[in-house]
Amino acid sequence: MRTPHVVVVMGVAGTGKTTIGPLLAARLGVPYAEGDDFHPRANIDKMTAGVPLGDEDRWPWLDAIGAWAHGRAGLGGVVSSSALKRSYRDRLRAAAPGIVFVHLTGDRKLIEDRMAHRRGHFMPTALLDSQFATLQPLEADERGVAVDVSGSPEEITERAAAALDALDSSTRSDEAGPSPR
């Protein structure tokens, strides 16, 4: 697999970004950055209190992730970020045009169950509805893949790596132009 991309592992809370991100980074042989670490304290305090973040709260966070991704351009890396809206992903792409998204998707009940059983995270299950309400899945013109979160972390990681490899292969084919007959 060729990957000097920066890969953004995205999705609603509870999809496993913090679990899959480091596993995918290890699989790709690139560094991992935890998106939650880029949040200013005020954002963490809001979410801990059960208050959803607004766009104005997210811009500095997205800019910090974008700066990290920009610094990894050509070197590769994996970073987690909910990146729920197209405008958020556009902002990340503006900072680091070569980024690729892995959208972790799955059954709401499964995601809610996983959220309910995780320990030590500031995001309460009560905010899951706001996450789903905000979510705008990847559009056809956005470079990325959707990966189902059912199964073990290792299975999800392998599906993500395979989907990225297939995306890279299709991009190389597109860049090469039509094959001769």
Rank of each mutant, 00 (worst) to 15 (best):
M1V: 10
T3Q: 10
T3V: 09
P4H: 14
P4Y: 08
P4L: 12
H5N: 06
H5D: 07
V6T: 12
V8P: 12
V8G: 13
M10N: 06
G11K: 06
G11H: 05
A13V: 02
T15E: 07
T18P: 00
G21H: 05
G21K: 04
A26R: 13
L28E: 04
L28V: 06
G29Q: 03
Y32R: 05
G35L: 12
D37F: 07
F38E: 00
F38T: 01
H39D: 00
P40L: 10
P40R: 13
P40Y: 06
A42L: 04
N43E: 05
I44V: 15
I44F: 03
I44P: 00
I44E: 06
D45I: 03
D45R: 13
D45V: 09
M47G: 07
V51H: 14
G54H: 11
D55Y: 06
P60N: 09
W61F: 11
A64P: 07
I65W: 01
I65Q: 02
G66Q: 01
G66H: 01
G66S: 03
A69N: 05
A69F: 09
A69D: 05
H70I: 00
R72S: 13
A73K: 07
A73R: 14
G74Y: 08
G74P: 11
G76Y: 07
G77C: 13
V79W: 01
S81E: 04
A83T: 04
L84W: 13
K85G: 02
R86L: 12
R89C: 08
R91E: 09
A94F: 09
A95S: 15
A96T: 05
A96N: 08
A96V: 03
P97A: 11
P97I: 03
G98V: 04
G98N: 14
I99T: 10
F101P: 00
H103P: 01
D107E: 15
K109C: 07
K109I: 04
L110W: 07
L110T: 12
E112P: 04
E112C: 04
D113A: 14
R114G: 02
M115H: 02
M115A: 05
A116Y: 01
H117I: 02
H117A: 13
R118F: 00
R119G: 01
G120L: 06
G120P: 04
M123D: 00
P124K: 09
L128E: 04
Q131C: 07
F132K: 06
F132S: 06
A133M: 12
L135M: 15
E139M: 15
R143H: 07
R143I: 01
V145K: 00
A146Y: 06
A146G: 15
D148K: 00
G151W: 04
G151V: 03
S152Y: 07
P153F: 10
E154A: 14
E158L: 05
E158G: 01
R159C: 00
A160H: 04
A166Q: 10
D168F: 08
S169T: 09
S169L: 09
T171W: 10
T171A: 15
R172Y: 03
R172I: 03
S173N: 15
D174A: 15
A176H: 11
A176S: 13
A176D: 07
G177S: 02
G177H: 02
G177W: 01
G177A: 06
P178R: 15
P180Q: 11
R181K: 11
